[in-house]
Design a protein around this nucleic acid. Sequence first.
DNA 1: ATTCAATGTCATCTG
DNA 2: CTCAGATGACATTGA
Length: 631
Amino acid sequence: MHHMKKYFTEGLIQFTILLSLIGVRVDVDTYLSGYFSPLIETDGGPSSAFIQTPFHHYRDTAAGHHVHPKCPELDYFFTSRRLLNEVRALGSPARFPTRVSAWLVHLVPDEGSDGDELPEDPDNQEVNTENHQEENDHRAGEGFGLSLSQDCTVSRPCCASGELSKEETLMNQENEEEDVKDEKKQEQTNPSSLTQSSALEHEDLVVSGSLPPPLSGLELPPRLQDFLSDFDDFDSIVPQHMSDLEADLSNPISYDVSLQDAMVTRGDSANCRSASSRAQLFRLESTNSSHSDPPHSSAGILSSSLFCLSGNSSRNETSSSQLGGYLDEAVFEHINMLDLCNLGQINPQMLDDMQGDMDTQWMEDSDSGLSLESSSRSVASPSSSSDSFGEDESGATGCSSEVESFSSKGGACAASYYDWSPVDLHENIWHDHTYSATQAHNSTSSNWFTAIKQEVMSEDEAEPEEMSRDEHRVQALGLPFSAFQIVNMPVENFLELLDRQNLSGSDVTLLRDVRRRGKNKLAAQNCRKRKLDAIVGLQGEVEGLMVQRDALLRQRDHTAKALSATAERFEALSRTMFSHIRDEYGHPLNPEHYTLHCSANGRVMVQPRTNTTSRTMKGSKTVKRKKDKKP
DNA sequence: ATTCAATGTCATCTG
DNA sequence: CTCAGATGACATTGA
């Protein structure tokens, strides 16, 4: 189920982003009405929307597990972030043809099936014209009228007619898989090279594939070039704000991923998106991330909560971050929509099959420490790594039991996982990572042991092995307490424990060290989280100040222009006045040597200019105030 | 082999 | 003084 959902989500997201960027509003609800409709379409050949990079297929395989080895449950988030970054990188059109060409592979055979000469094909021209129109519409901010169904009139027939051979299908898939493999490499290497190669590959596909006879190889490249040339102007296609905001997108603080922990704590629910806003995909007016919709979405619990992350990430962003807001919301909203709709329609057999993979993922999910929120989800993984009971505690306030139940629910685990309410998730993710210390402290002295014991027992069941060094040391003492308990028990109980157990001095020191290290570990984690919070806050502050600075600069320019205009008017008025003013000899005054001065009482006086004072100083006293009446 | 991020640990300070 | 928490600095680990 995860495979299918992720696969479809990926494809839809990418396709949606692609279409949205060229101004086509995509209504995915038509797909959601029938969950497997994409499958039906892909039977006849890979629909352009669903041959997109199947990251999760890769991630779920042994070869591709490295994609997100630490936190598969946050895979949505990271994948969305990765897609988001890709889209952000589209500020330069270099990467874009990779996706576009994948789309074109289906577009061309469809047109070829009509048997028309491509350059003269009116439909084709219509398509191109339509694209241009969409682009123009998009420029005007009105290009959201086209629905997916319209677009599918281009791509679907080729799938239905099965004109794409199996070979071509496989090649397409391989292409996409290669894209997946090269995704990371592209990040470091020159993106244009791969883009070109990908485009070439797709072009080769088109040329050498099972194209109908009317489509000769000589005709296609110009067409592709024409089509791609449309996207060469991508920067101009994309709304102006996109390019305006590029600088901000290259923000040196990459809090998109790394600082998510910091953002987590800022996860006020007010920023979460409501599923009711599904229909407002990619609308400019809906892109302000400061939504106040409560996070009561019934679907996409994890993703919706992660959207809170997204919202938080852009919460402090000012206008210069609007693009991120647009894309974040578009991407996450799609995920939110697709996330968990119609889960009940999944074949139970498939669910069972995938359960194994899922368990494997969770088993393989290993994260030392807590990774704060992320690892808090991985409590269920028995292979949690080494040196910490912190990951045991990472369930923190009550999370472990839920995850425990999650991992034990068999085929329903995914559903139950997604059945977590957003509030629950918030409680489990956005909680203060003081772990159960607060819980233990809040509990009365009589039940502190029970509270800790329950938590630890569930965790011990989940992780009978992989104990930390301190855990091993404590166990070696033969004490009926775990390191977790020792860390989190009240100090009076800890002292009582030290007294009762007839421990040697070294053992007492060991237990004290265990307790100290455990507490300090949590403190360090909190400290780092706060630090990231501070960084993000400062970043938002800087952005706000930059906006303020820009506003002040604009205001200064405006004021300078007004002042200049006023000075010109004053000069003109002065010249007019000087033309009527005469000295005692009846000679007109030279405006270059004299200036009018308005006194506080409203009187207007004639004064020699200061820069000419040296020349006219001697005579100025006599010339001054010859006439102070306005004409 | 090197780099880097994440995390754990220690020392120290503060309330 | 002890304790808990905060934080800088360093070590370790894994990608």
